[in-house]
């Protein structure tokens, strides 16, 4: 069943925005109440980021190991808070017919997805702020050289994972199995995104493939925004001015947008609203 084919309710923009915010607020309430969701989406990404605290010495790719790891974990946090969490949320809500009730109401399909995406994006932004504060206070880091770019990377990264989560939930049978279906994606993306280590030892073709997978451009944009260095080129990364950093990040931002489009198309094909017919 397609995400949207028929005319959807709430076409009035103010109603759409209002309902998106109401769904987001609801999702935040539920996220804080469910222990498993709280751990997966909030606590675990912060724990991951804290790993960087153990890596205070040495350099990777021309920057300190701790900051390199922390910025990578910052990108990876989006995977957990949005992709992993929403895959489970959509699957469980389908199983429990919550999606059916939502779709049968005045809520538009856009508001349903955008609301859930907004909630996880807000959580992710707060996590990013916490991790950046951690970088400054404990790892000798600094404020991001291009804060708007880093912010855009965080937001777009989160938005990208919403349709991808919807698509994966479509082929996931139950809430329990959601953790399992997400696992291969997590392993592949974590290993190929340079979130924790550079891929310079990998054959060039594989490096190119890795660079085009969803998490890689998010890692690059966040690092360009944080360090003000061109992480789209091999180390040593050239230093970039504010405008130059936007130009360097542009192709990676476009790739994230391309993944948003691809994810939406896949979700339209595979997403199911209810267990029986979809």
């Amino acid at each position: 069943m397609a995400l949207s084919r028929p005319q959807s309710p709430s076409l009035d923009p103010s109603l759409l925005l209002g309902n998106t915010w109401r769904v987001a607020r609801l999702d935040l309430t539920l996220l804080l109440r469910n222990r498993m969701a709280f751990f997966t989406a909030i606590a675990f990404p912060l724990l991951l980021g804290s790993v960087a605290l153990l890596l205070r010495s040495g350099y990777v790719s021309g920057v300190s190991t701790g900051l390199y790891t922390l910025t990578g974990m910052l990108a990876l946090a989006g995977f957990f808070v949005t992709f992993m969490h929403l895959t489970t949320v959509f699957t469980v809500r389908r199983e429990e017919l919550v999606l059916k009730r939502m779709r049968g109401s005045v809520l538009s399909e856009t508001a349903i997805f955008a609301g859930s995406g907004l909630a996880t994006t807000l959580v992710y932004v707060v996590q990013a702020a916490v991790l950046i504060t951690l970088s400054i206070t404990t790892l000798g880091g600094h404020l991001p050289r291009n804060l708007p770019l880093l912010f855009l990377g965080v937001v777009l990264g989160s938005v990208m994972f919403v349709p991808l989560a919807a698509a994966l939930s479509g082929v996931t049978k139950s809430g329990e199995s959601a953790q399992i279906t997400v696992l291969p994606a997590m392993l592949v993306l974590a290993a190929t995104s340079q979130a924790s280590f550079p891929l310079t030892g990998m054959p060039e073709l594989l490096q190119r493939i890795a660079a085009s997978l969803p998490l890689s451009p998010v890692v690059d944009v966040i690092r360009i925004g944080y360090f003000g260095l061109d992480f789209t080129t091999a180390a040593p990364h050239p230093e970039l001015g504010f405008t130059q950093s936007w130009a360097a990040a542009a192709p990676r931002l476009l790739l994230i947008c391309a993944w948003i489009v691809v994810g939406t198309l896949i979700a339209r094909k595979y997403f199911r609203w209810e267990p029986r017919h979809g």
């Binding site: 609801l26 309430t29 539920l30 429990e96 919550v98 009730r101 049968g104």
Partner: peptide, 10 residues
């Protein structure tokens, strides 16, 4: 609905 459709934690 015939059944379900609630947010159990609300």
């Amino acid at each position: 609905l015939q059944e379900g459709g609630f947010f159990g934690d609300l």
